[in-house]
């Protein structure tokens, strides 16, 4: 029983700390050519593990452990984010949106940025699981 209460409390805490009201900046859009790029690592899902390590190192301080988004940072689980193409997410990680608090990560090697995109897709499953429960 205490375990169930604990899990419920944790879930409430997680959801309430989430930036579910996140609205993407309408002016921050990947050019069509960039958005159409495919993830060169799409056939290598095992490389998402490296993406997880990079996410922990560079992103959790703003996006949280499960991409839920702390303060103004985007909730990366939301369909409004997950419905974007791999190329669009890659472009956003590369360029950032410095005026709204998202840094540019062009200093991370290209393939590692694609590894991050692989890992970001894991957050889609969290969202689907949540809505199913």
């Amino acid at each position: 029983m205490t375990r169930i209460i604990f899990v419920c409390m944790l879930a409430v805490a997680l959801i309430s700390a989430q930036n579910t009201h996140y609205q993407p900046d309408a002016n921050w859009r990947a050019p069509d050519e960039a958005a159409a790029k495919e993830n060169p690592l799409a056939e290598k899902p095992e490389l998402a593990a490296g993406g997880k390590k990079l996410f922990k190192r560079n992103c959790v301080e703003c996006h949280g452990d499960s991409g839920q988004g702390l303060k103004k940072a985007a909730d990366l689980q939301l369909p409004i984010v997950q419905n974007q193409s791999d190329g669009a997410l890659f472009w956003k990680i590369t360029n950032g949106n410095p005026d709204r608090g998202m840094p540019s990560f062009s200093g991370i090697p290209e393939l590692q940025r694609w590894q991050l995109v692989l890992y970001l897709r894991k957050f889609k499953q969290i969202d689907t699981e949540k809505t199913q429960n």
Binding site: L47, A49, G50, G51, K52, K53, L54, P109, L111, Q112
Partner: peptide, 11 residues
């Protein structure tokens, strides 16, 4: 330049 392009999964 970085010496490796891919991040391994382990620490």
């Amino acid at each position: 330049r970085p010496l490796s392009k891919i991040a391994s999964g382990n620490e």
